[in-house]
Simulated scan of single mutants.
Amino acid sequence: MITDPLFFAVAIPAVLIVGISKGGLGGGLGMLAVPLMSMAISPFQAAAIMLPILIVMDLVSLWGFRGRYDRTNLKIILPSAVVGITIAALTFRYMTEADIKLLIGTIAILFTANYFYKQLRHGPQPARAADPLRGSFWGTLAGFTSFSVHAGGPPLNIYLLPQKLEKSLFAGTTVIFYAVVNMVKVLPYFLLGQFDSTNLSTSATLVILAPIGVSIGIWLHHRVNEQRFYLICYLLLLITGTKLVWEALHEFGLLAS
């Protein structure tokens, strides 16, 4: 098991943050976990440690939002996410962490910038309907980025947020999506040797925080009004996208340390 105090100093808040996100407060918030843990260990090891914890969180979240989901959207995004996971698993050894961070961070920034621009220029936009073509594209990208660094939030939010679903319906739909995606990731993670004894024992140590974080998120979810909820989602999407791009540029050597 990892015993470095620095690791636990960043891992404990990281797990709690993801739990709060899983509880329904801010779809992009959970993306911060791997970058935070990467301050002490490699991003790939951080992702492997987080996966069992995410699955426990998914189980708690499924109970908290049971019966609240959008069936039409799930029929579109779940099959495409499996396709994305398959592509990511097959190309895992050819993609760097910086590649994935730059891709998803850029998409998140451009999307939120466009959203706030439209809000300022034209006011609130009409809700979009579920769309098989758009949903398949963003679902595939969400599966792809989720596999590498558990960063499926921005692509999924890009597709779902413009639909302006009722907040519990939105949260319940994302909960089911992540639960299925994370379970599908177990087999390729195992085949790629990500679940060694060090990673699994560290996961077991941190997993006690999973229900605590989710419970906090569910509590906050029911106390934040819908307008603020979506504003928080978009702001978190922008923050996490900016952080991912900044880290990617550092890893490419384009920014000074």
Results as ranks from 00 to 15, higher is better:
W63P: 07
L36Y: 01
G26E: 06
A46I: 03
G27S: 09
S42G: 14
M50Q: 12
M37P: 06
L29W: 07
L62M: 13
W63M: 12
I20M: 05
G27Y: 00
L62C: 13
A48D: 01
W63D: 14
P43M: 10
K22P: 07
A48N: 04
G30W: 03
I20F: 07
L54E: 11
A33K: 02
V60S: 13
M37V: 13
Q45A: 14
P35K: 05
P43G: 10
S38N: 11
I20L: 11
A33I: 03
V56I: 15
I41T: 10
I41L: 14
P35A: 11
S21K: 02
L25R: 02
V60G: 01
L32D: 05
G19Y: 00
K22I: 04
L29V: 15
L25C: 08
A46E: 01
P35R: 07
A46H: 02
M31K: 05
A46G: 13
P35M: 08
G23I: 03
I41A: 06
I20W: 02
M37C: 11
L25E: 01
L59A: 15
I49G: 04
G30S: 14
Q45P: 03
I49A: 10
I41R: 01
G26D: 08
L62H: 09
A40K: 09
K22R: 13
P52N: 06
G30H: 06
M57Y: 02
M37A: 12
D58I: 09
L32R: 02
A33T: 14
V18P: 01
G24P: 07
V34L: 09
V60N: 08
M57Q: 15
G26A: 14
L51D: 01
P43V: 07
G26Q: 06
S21I: 10
V56Q: 05
A40Q: 06
I17R: 04
S21Y: 01
